[in-house]
Design a protein around this nucleic acid. Sequence first.
DNA 1: ATGGCGGCTCGCAGCCGA
Length: 258
Amino acid sequence: MSTIKIATYNVNSIRAREERVVEWLTLTKPDIVCMQELKVEDDAFPTLVWKSLGYHSASFGQKTYNGVAILSKEPITDVTRGFPDDTDAQARLIFATTFGLQIMSGYFPNGESRESDKFQYKLRWLDRMTTHLSQKITAKHDFILAGDFNIAPEDIDCHEPLQWADSVLCCKEVRHAWKKIVALGLTDTVRATHPDSPEFTWWDYRMLSFPKKKGLRIDHLIATQSLATRVTGAGVDRDARKGKSPSDHAPTWIELRS
DNA sequence: ATGGCGGCTCGCAGCCGA
């Protein structure tokens, strides 16, 4: 049976992570990759490195912060960057068609703290995203949104739910926004595959969080029903979080019947 | 062992992330 593997990976700087990402691509051979936190402008995104590994790519980068990309073993078409009519200064969204499906790579705002202006920006961004998705999703196309949502949707997604309850990643406002997004008809594919295990995707660099297994599940792949019913496996590449100079996120993946 | 933050920048200290 032939399958397609789709992964999402917040690399926390592609300049700092290029070598590790190349190793990971070579080892795990995903067909499509959504990347976030490139932290480079497009002319510094290593397109030729991906090409040498057999990947087409499209990026939406900026200096210092943010930046998203899509890599694919098949040609990438219909690329759009940001929201329609966007005046957002932050590069957080790229959309494309590849392998006959519509895919979005998203880097959702963190929000810093609930008292911060950045939290208001996060809530506005989530609203805009919900509106954008409601216009984008149609019965005609397979659609998947993959990325760093900066939302841990449920208590099972947190190592210490009480400690995180009022945080910008877990608080009621962002969990409500998550529910509105999935209610558009998108399935949380990793949670649907693993209903009872945490499947953390991020661990703080500090306090030995990774070896102590104190993580959060904030990176997600949510897909229309047409795709969700084709999922044959899903998981988190914890090995990519080990060793020297890892990203603080691990790549998360699903496999589909093609 | 999976190991004590690590990226970034009009940089050598401070901002930011989650």
